[in-house]
């Protein structure tokens, strides 16, 4: 039976990409460019965060302009807990995840009473409040932020090494994407996309749409919080700018660029945007100009984002 909503797992291209990502550290070390591993790990983390936002924007029709708040909450949770003597990632990262989820529960419970542009501006408002709160609290380091004493440890695994950290980030991202696919293919995923397309009718069919949206909002917040925790662990420092609206805007750009409502849209957008930044910046200090032209070209010529473009090209014989 035809099933248009089901997200298929195309084993061959998927395995090829995973194999490339697994082999990347070996290539980087062989090429004598170990610096790229930190960059690559950052890309993987942003891929996770952007995917969580894609779940909201692309599949739930919830255009959140405050997603950075959940990232910041997770990052600061790690930065605050570590000096208290908690050094295990097994505790720190779940705590970051929980922080993102709780903040999303509080913000979502209020903002999801509204929709459309009002929802966009409400989420922005709460994230900005969090930004100014962090900015002015001296216990959180005000505008200097906080530095982590060292990278957390993951049991026997020492995350101090960039290669180990890279593989952990890769594992988290892949687990995240698989979980997202499972969620979307499950009945709750159908319901989510139904709400995106026609919320009133969904209610008239008996769906508790508000509760469903809030649940997904919390899940996305949790994933973003986890991403924030990973980011703090990788960078070794956190700053209030993690909460700023520009960060939320950047995440949104990643999602739209990659393809809202495509499973790999968020990951693809994060990878392309960050890689383009890195590549163009090597050649000119005016790299934002290049990024701007690139984004403009994509809006005009690939309305469904890069994932949509890939699909279109891929389906042509």
């Amino acid at each position: 039976m035809r099933d248009t909503l089901r997200i298929p797992l195309r084993p061959r291209p998927a395995l090829a990409v995973v194999a490339m990502l697994v082999l990347l550290p070996i290539a980087a070390l062989a090429a004598g460019q170990p610096f790229y591993l930190v960059f690559a790990a950052r890309v993987l983390i942003y891929a996770l965060i952007a995917s969580s936002l894609n779940l909201l924007i692309g599949y739930g029709g919830m255009v959140s302009f405050g997603h950075a708040a959940f990232v910041g909450a997770g990052a600061y949770t790690v930065a605050v807990l570590m000096p208290m003597g908690i050094g295990s990632a097994w505790l720190l990262w779940p705590a970051a995840l929980l922080a993102g989820a709780l903040l999303a529960l509080a913000i979502g419970a209020i903002c999801l009473r509204t929709s459309g542009v009002t929802f966009i501006m409400m989420t922005l408002a709460f994230a900005q409040m969090a930004y100014y709160l962090v900015l002015s609290l001296q216990v959180l380091g005000s505008d200097d932020g906080l530095a982590l004493p060292k990278r957390p440890s993951l049991g026997v695994l020492d995350l101090g090494g960039d290669t180990a950290f890279y593989y952990v980030a890769l594992a988290v991202l892949l687990a995240g994407l698989l979980a997202m696919r499972a969620l979307l293919n499950a009945p709750i995923g159908r319901a989510l996309q139904g709400i995106r397309d026609n919320e009133t009718r969904m209610e008239a069919l008996g769906f508790a749409t508000y509760r469903l949206k809030l649940l997904v909002f919390v899940i996305a917040g949790a994933a973003a919080g986890l991403g924030g925790g990973l980011l703090a662990s990788l960078n070794g420092l956190v700053g209030p700018n993690l909460f700023n609206w520009t960060e939320s805007g950047l995440l949104m750009v990643m999602v739209i660029l990659g393809g809202a409502g495509r499973l790999i849209g968020g990951a693809l957008g994060a990878a392309v945007l960050l890689a383009a930044e890195e590549l163009i910046a090597e050649h000119t200090i005016h790299w934002p100009l290049g990024i701007g032209v690139l984004l403009l070209a994509i809006v005009l010529f690939a309305p469904q984002g890069l994932a949509g473009l890939a699909r279109r090209v891929g389906s042509d014989p």
Partner: peptide, 24 residues
């Protein structure tokens, strides 16, 4: 005629371009 999301992406690109031209 495009979605709000496309408008956000396109005008964000304009910000980047305008900033760089002014910087140049």
């Amino acid at each position: 005629a495009r979605s709000h999301l496309s408008q956000v992406l396109a005008t964000f690109a304009v910000i980047l371009i305008a900033n760089e031209i002014v910087r140049m």
